[in-house]
Nucleic acid binder design. Structure first.
Ligand code: FES
Ligand code: FES
Lengths: 151, 151
DNA sequence: TATATTTAAGATATAAGAGTCTTATTTCTT
DNA sequence: AAGAAATAAGACTCTTATATCTTAAATATA
């Protein structure tokens, strides 16, 4: 798919944390249980976000992870780039070594346009915006079989 | 990336064949050399396109592959679906099990819109259209280090 | 008919992504 | 000080994607 599985776990986890911004820290175990994914795997993913300065963490009792900055200032793009790298926003659709306006591949023109839209969208879409819509519209963050968000 | 490597090999190979529609068959070896990719791997990829009815093949001397239909009637989408499946055009951006208007994930609205544009683009973009632009504008089908298309 | 040419098919190998497990390390509580 | 609760780090395993290699089948030509 368009983003890696690791990356969508990261986005969903970040949204879960954003939904609980009132709490100082949320434990990774709680996130993993609500989103229906492996605790250990999620730990690794969130470590990456912490190292990139998107989250902060705190060890020990009452510890966990939280957003390093206000949810309003964290874009989806930032998370995608942290996990998957820049390729989605700069790579060639046909997988050529470089994507270059001066030496375009056949799909360049059409893809570059859509890609810009995608980048704009991902840049403008913040965790705060999505968290707000999740709260108001009850959007789902997990598969149906996973534990509900309402806890 | 957005499509698999296998898939972009397939698209580039199909374009190479479309560029030589005048010839009854083009050998896979010739395609692989011009595009700079493994003959054996390309053979497997083109077998898939042949099985899906996008190409036809012929064994033996003077054999090779050719388009099963006029280049004008083969869309990029058809090739993507043949190799990567429908997921790109119907899957959830967050990797949830289903993408559903009634139970959307937070990114659904924004992604569904872009995805429709992508699907339209891929459906309307035919091998003939791209081959024509490649001929007129000299667009590149391969990395620079690969053998040139001009032979 | 024999040989060369070409794709078909399938087995094998390598690399990357996804996921699990174990052992630190930090911090709170008692 | 001891023990419990939590993340950090790294080794390990499993799966999928990518790529290679070998053999078979079909076809043309000499
Ligand atoms: S060169 Fe291929 S998308 Fe830009
Ligand atoms: S439900 Fe996630 S993109 Fe449609």
């Amino acid at each position: 798919m368009i983003i890696s599985k690791t990356c969508d776990h990261a986005i969903r986890a970040a949204l879960y944390v954003a939904l609980h911004e009132d709490r100082a820290y949320v434990t990774i175990r709680e996130i993993s249980e609500h989103l229906g994914l492996s605790f250990h795997f999620l730990t690794k993913i969130l470590q990456a976000l912490t190292q990139k300065g998107i989250m902060t963490s705190f060890k020990g009792p009452n510890g966990g992870v939280s957003l390093a900055r206000p949810a309003q200032s964290i874009s989806i793009k930032e998370i995608v780039v942290a996990i998957d790298g820049e390729a989605l926003f700069s790579g060639c659709m046909l997988g050529l070594d470089t994507c270059n306006d001066d030496h375009p591949c056949p799909l360049h023109q059409q893809w570059a346009n859509l890609r810009d839209q995608l980048e704009t969208l991902f840049t403008q879409t913040t965790l705060a915006y999505l968290a707000d819509r999740i709260r108001r519209e009850g959007l789902r963050l997990a598969n149906f079989e996973a534990v509900s968000l309402v806890s």
